[in-house]
């Protein structure tokens, strides 16, 4: 084995390691869904990798949920304490933002059952 051989082998190992990490970052986020529940009922699920602003209105008031750059936050709400807004952004699996007065739960789920997802079929391929 000479220097060139060694260099080639090292390059391949670096390429493999890098692509492994890049693919894992991509694939981890791929299936992530943002699940919005109001009063115990599923309001909707949205892919985490698509930017979207969702207005949720119910008898108790409104919340604005924003999905942006793989992060979720409640940007606006008319509840008294505004704890949901103060909770900031979430981006990891199983994290959640809860607005108690409006009985609103926003959570990130790595896997969502297909029958729960409804109209969103992007993860079932």
């Amino acid at each position: 084995m000479n220097k060139r051989d060694f260099a080639f082998i090292v390059i391949i190992i670096i390429v493999a390691t890098l692509s492994y990490f890049i693919m894992n970052i991509g694939s981890d986020r791929d299936g992530y869904m943002v699940k919005v529940t109001v009063d115990g009922k599923l309001y909707g699920t949205y892919p985490l990798d698509e930017d979207k602003t969702i207005e949720i209105k119910n008898a108790d008031g409104f919340n604005t949920v924003s999905i942006h750059d793989g992060q979720v936050s409640v940007t606006d709400a008319d509840c008294k304490d505004k704890y949901c807004v103060k909770q900031g952004v979430i981006s990891n699996n199983n994290e959640s933002i809860i607005c108690l007065p409006h009985k609103l739960v926003v959570e990130i789920a790595g896997t969502v059952d297909n029958n729960e997802v409804g109209e969103v079929d992007s993860i079932a391929k």
Partner: peptide
């Protein structure tokens, strides 16, 4: 510039 090891690895 590669030895048989490098050729075979490629």
């Amino acid at each position: 510039s590669f030895s048989i090891i490098g050729v075979s690895a490629a």
